[in-house]
Design a protein around this nucleic acid. Structure first.
Lengths: 352, 352
DNA sequence: CTGAAAGCGCTTACAG
DNA sequence: CTGAAAGCGCTTACAG
């Protein structure tokens, strides 16, 4: 029971090229100090042998450590959405730590742009070779990412995209299509009035996320020529009291509302309100597999949750950096997450 | 940039125990030939240091190869469902090959129990240390697995379970709940008659899979006291002609059918029939992300597909064996797959 | 029952 | 521009 004897390693390459393995190593890593002639000879042999480096041996022998920085929102009292990506990040971290990779985690406050800038500064101050970022604050993120770009630090975006930047990759939802799915699901619940509310509960009222989702949502109805009155509303103060106040007003103005589509994870706040207000006749759709959302889903107050595998976003984001930096792999520029549909019936087996 | 100096390896253990690293290695792998006293001393130090072996170094140094066998249905003309698990298996294989793991793949014919037995014999004849199996043929699988058990070969089941066996783990759907979800989805499409057909297109009419799914399906209606007439029917000849003939008869008998729930991936055959018969008024739900199914989903002939991540089942199944055999990890006895809901709108981003 | 030594396929100073 | 040698943290004969 021996490993296949057909494995060709640096030793064999060196033998065939009549050089030492040190020289082979230089060529393998594009290090300088090799004559063009030797280089070509070695590269030819590498191609011929279809040489696959043994990563285990490589990482074992190397004493270099690679440090990555993570920059995402802090888990807050208002929403624990960011728990999931963080879980994925930690899982990836545990897996790649043994390859000599170190991760520093930086958290900012969703309600405080300044905290983002502070953390971004910290990241730039430390000597990192890769960055994972949620570009929640668009302008501030651009500044930061421009600096990363200047320093040739590759970065991965999760949760939402900034398409015009030269990112290593984006891992997250196709927001437009996600809104489209939301609209479709909502039609299952529509009865006579066909009057629905699109609700954005967030400090960033004009966020790219929200606009994309709403566009997709509206597109569904225009594509299908379904008559439907769509009201939209922003709730930019995200504390429970403000939400209650605003919702009371909206429902007063539009008492014949049939359904509400919440464009992010704060749908539980709406569910809580509807429950208290005894308006369980209103259908409710929103985002994300949060404990609070699941509770209302089970109670039947929320009809559907849409989810984009936030844990996997974190995990894959880290692995993309690892694959790029350690294995030198080519990374797909965009990796859209599935648009998962969660109901009371299938929630028990959902994997974030 | 050095790796943390705080890593304790066999060398440090040996130093502290005043023995050689060979002796430490013996204790680490429960090999014989170490005095109880030394053994205890070493084990204490291992505990104290919370020693984590470096798998990279371990696999690099070891020349042992571990061979695993896969025993699943062949991709047939009738359905290419098994393409997906095989993809997952190959992906896992590529990942763990470098750790000295070899995989032999064995395929049997879904319409031929004998071919299963032939392949099972082959597996038992080769010297394997782990098995991945789809227990499609229940009795024959039992025989085979009993022999594996006698030889202390761990095995993983995917796609469907045989709960009373001492398997390493089961990775697949919770069938009952999956049927329950199917029923729920179906109610979105029900209008007046509330008359539905449960259809099992398979040679194995009495299969465990089918019965579990149907039970879940029926349970939904009884749980919700929804009046619904449920017809059930088996089509045991799975060629297109037989299916057409049987469906023609059924629709003739029950012209007021509102919906059909197909309990496996052969829903495309029903969709093709309904299309030809111009019975697009009938709602259709079935299983699995097959190319043919997706085509009909896009056309609107199929309303929902339920899917249990077959590719991931294959991948995880292999990784479970790897983790058990190479890393000595403890494996969860059951890993239920999510019950994914696929519609025309979200299919583009689905990940098998 | 125990240990010294070679080796897995790489990387890394160091010397020339 | 190039090579000899040590070493990464383990495993494996082999010798005693």
């Amino acid at each position: 029971m021996k490993k296949e004897a057909t494995y060709f390693g640096v030793k064999e390459i060196a033998r065939r090229a009549n050089v030492s393995i040190a020289t082979v190593d230089r060529v393998l890593h594009n290090r300088s100090g090799v004559s063009e002639k030797t280089k070509k000879k070695i590269n030819d042999i590498i191609t011929e042998l279809d040489y696959q480096p043994n990563i285990l041996a490589s990482r074992l022998a190397s004493k270099k450590i690679i440090s990555l920085a993570v920059l995402i929102p802090r888990v807050s009292e208002e929403t624990d959405f960011w728990e999931a990506p963080l879980r994925g990040i930690s899982r990836a971290e545990a897996e790649i730590r043994k390859y000599g990779i170190q991760v520093s985690e930086h958290f900012f406050d969703l309600n405080d742009k300044h905290s983002f800038e502070t953390q971004a500064q910290l990241v730039l101050g430390s000597d990192v070779q890769g960055v994972l970022l949620s570009p929640t604050f668009l302008d501030e993120s651009r500044d930061f990412l421009q600096k990363c770009h200047d320093r040739k630090i590759p970065f991965v975006l999760i949760d939402s995209d900034v398409p015009d930047l030269d990112r290593l990759c984006y891992i997250g939802p196709h927001l437009f299509q996600s809104g489209y799915v939301g609209a479709k699901l909502l039609t299952y619940r529509l009865k006579e009035n066909h009057k629905v509310l699109v609700l954005n509960i967030s400090q960033e009222a004009d966020s790219y996320n929200f606009m994309q989702i709403e566009e997709g949502f509206r597109a569904y109805f225009s594509d299908h020529q379904q008559p439907c009155e769509i009201i939209r509303s922003d709730i930019s103060h995200t504390d429970p009291l403000s939400i209650t106040r605003d919702l009371t007003r909206i429902l007063h103005e539009h008492s014949d509302l049939e359904a509400i589509f919440v464009t992010n994870s704060r749908v539980f706040a709406v569910a809580a309100f509807l429950k208290k207000a005894a308006r369980t006749d209103i259908s409710l759709i929103g985002y994300d597999f949060l404990k609070q959302n699941i509770t209302y889903l089970k109670e039947g107050l929320i009809d559907f949750l849409i989810c984009h595998k936030p844990e996997e976003q974190g995990y894959r984001g880290m692995m993309a950096l690892y694959q790029k930096l350690v294995l030198g792999a080519t990374i797909e520029k965009v990796h859209f997450m599935p648009i998962d549909i969660i109901t009371k019936e299938n929630q028990a087996f959902y994997q974030n």
